[in-house]
Design a protein around this nucleic acid. Structure first.
Ligand SMILES: [Mn+2]
Ligand SMILES: [Mn+2]
Ligand SMILES: [Zn+2]
Ligand SMILES: [Zn+2]
Lengths: 144, 144
DNA sequence: TTTGCAAATGCAACATGATTGCATTTGCAA
DNA sequence: TTGCAAATGCAATCATGTTGCATTTGCAAA
């Protein structure tokens, strides 16, 4: 297996402690993590927790290098996931519960992207399905 | 035609100056407006511009009452549109340019929502298509 | 192994979006 | 006309994210 350090160096990034910590964290976690969540975990687990700003810059570097994916969630917070983790969720649609904020993987494949006007370049297409999950619906908790 | 004031009162909201201003603004504008944009317009056009916080609370009230729609854009900023305006764009897909932030209406109809697990309740399904628009592509400005 | 230096980090300050508490004002139903 | 729940203004506070700059460090070359 390829080490986290070599993954970083192969992507042209120096293998610094902060980057090793964050990339390992993203690789071990299934759900996308926010900067705040990563910072909290770093304070708890890392022996020398990196600075807040360093974490922002690490996430920016990982994203720019293609090792992580950045997406803004419904509340307007940026969330990051490792490229491989993200890939595993590319072939199906997700359901976002407006009650509890939970994300559920559906079995349906994503729809085909539509035809674009001349000169337009497609980069990503996401089918965003929102509503109330079974548990929240039972409790009578509707959206937000 | 129904007055803005009666629309508010029919929705169970008091017809206050701030609400009248914001709802009229949203109704007259085609593109979704952010709080900052609304505040700037209020300072320019309203005789007694409402407080920043009041605008937040007005937008919250309009959304809760179903008179406005709230959506977080790519930069993590909340944007609001009048219910009717929003309805006009429900029957086709939109393209979001990562270069200039522009939104383009496509001709393709939205895909059918997928089957949900038992107990789940669908509220909205949005097909979010991102990339680079023709103008930005010509200028060589890729995504963010 | 040592060393040079571009790149990465820490720290402080700043920017912007959004929320909360509380005293005061006001829409509107009675 | 009037009472009062609801709405507003204002100040403080929080959250997310950015920028400038001095210091440290990963790592490639010597
Ligand atoms: Mn999934
Ligand atoms: Mn449209
Ligand atoms: Zn739920
Ligand atoms: Zn563009």
């Amino acid at each position: 297996m390829e080490s986290i350090a070599s993954i970083l160096r192969n992507a042209g990034l120096k293998a610094t402690p902060a980057r090793l910590f964050v990339l390992r964290l993203l690789a071990e976690t299934t759900k996308p993590l926010s900067h705040a969540e990563i910072e909290a975990l770093a304070r708890k687990e890392a022996d020398a927790p990196p600075d807040r700003v360093t974490l922002y810059r690490v996430l920016e570097a990982l994203t720019a290098a293609g090792l992580a994916t950045k997406a803004v969630d419904r509340r307007g917070v940026a969330r990051f996931s490792a490229r491989d983790t993200h890939r595993r969720h590319e072939r199906h649609v997700h359901f976002h519960c407006l009650g509890c904020g939970g994300v559920f993987c559906l079995t349906a494949p994503p729809p085909k992207p539509p035809r674009l006007p001349k000169g337009f370049r497609l980069e990503a297409a996401e089918f965003d399905v929102k509503g109330t999950c079974a548990q929240c619906a039972a409790k009578g908790k509707s959206g937000a």
